[in-house]
Amino acid sequence: MAFRTTRPLRFGDCDPSGIAYFPSYLNILVGVLEDYFSSIGFSWRKLIDDRRIGVPTVRLDLTFIKPGLQGDNLEFLLAVRGVGRSSLDLEHQVSANGQVLWTAKHRVVATSLDTHKSLEWPDDIRAALTSHLETTDAHHPAT
Rank of each mutant, 00 (worst) to 15 (best):
Met1Asn: 01
Phe3Trp: 07
Thr5Glu: 11
Thr6Met: 05
Thr6Val: 14
Leu9Asp: 00
Arg10His: 12
Phe11Gly: 11
Gly12Ser: 09
Gly12Asp: 04
Cys14Ile: 05
Ala20Gly: 15
Phe22Tyr: 13
Tyr25Leu: 11
Tyr25Ile: 08
Leu26Arg: 08
Ile28Gln: 10
Ile28Lys: 08
Leu29Glu: 06
Leu33Glu: 09
Glu34His: 12
Asp35Met: 03
Asp35Asn: 14
Asp35Cys: 04
Asp35His: 11
Phe37Tyr: 15
Ser38Ile: 08
Ser39Asn: 12
Ser39Ile: 09
Ile40Pro: 04
Trp44His: 12
Lys46Cys: 08
Lys46Gln: 13
Asp49Gln: 14
Arg51Tyr: 15
Arg52Trp: 09
Ile53Trp: 04
Gly54Arg: 00
Val55Cys: 15
Thr57Val: 15
Val58Ser: 04
Val58Ile: 14
Leu60Trp: 12
Asp61Thr: 14
Leu62Gly: 00
Thr63Glu: 11
Phe64Ile: 02
Phe64Tyr: 09
Phe64Leu: 09
Ile65Ala: 10
Lys66Met: 01
Pro67Gly: 00
Pro67Asp: 01
Gly68Val: 01
Gly71Val: 04
Asp72Leu: 00
Phe76Ile: 05
Leu78Val: 12
Ala79Lys: 08
Val80Ser: 03
Val80Cys: 06
Arg81His: 12
Val83Leu: 05
Val83Ala: 02
Val83Met: 06
Val83Arg: 03
Ser86Glu: 10
Ser87Tyr: 05
Leu90His: 05
Leu90Cys: 09
Leu90Thr: 04
Glu91Ile: 03
Glu91His: 11
Gln93Pro: 00
Gln93Phe: 01
Val94Asn: 02
Ser95Asp: 13
Ser95Gly: 03
Asn97Glu: 13
Asn97Lys: 09
Gly98Cys: 07
Gln99Thr: 07
Gln99Trp: 04
Leu101Asp: 00
Thr103Leu: 09
Ala104Gln: 13
His106Ser: 06
His106Trp: 03
Arg107Tyr: 01
Arg107Cys: 15
Val108Asp: 10
Val109Ala: 07
Val109Thr: 04
Leu113Pro: 00
Asp114Thr: 15
Thr115Asn: 03
His116Thr: 15
Glu120Ala: 14
Trp121Cys: 00
Pro122Arg: 06
Ile125Val: 13
Arg126Ala: 06
Ala127Gln: 14
Ala127Ser: 13
Ala128Cys: 06
Leu129Ile: 08
Leu129Ser: 03
Leu129Cys: 02
Ser131Arg: 13
His132Ile: 09
Glu134Ser: 15
Thr135Trp: 07
Thr135Gly: 07
Asp137Tyr: 04
Ala138Met: 08
Ala138Arg: 10
His139Asp: 13
His140Met: 13
Pro141Leu: 08
Pro141Lys: 07
Pro141Gly: 08
Ala142His: 07
Thr143Ile: 12
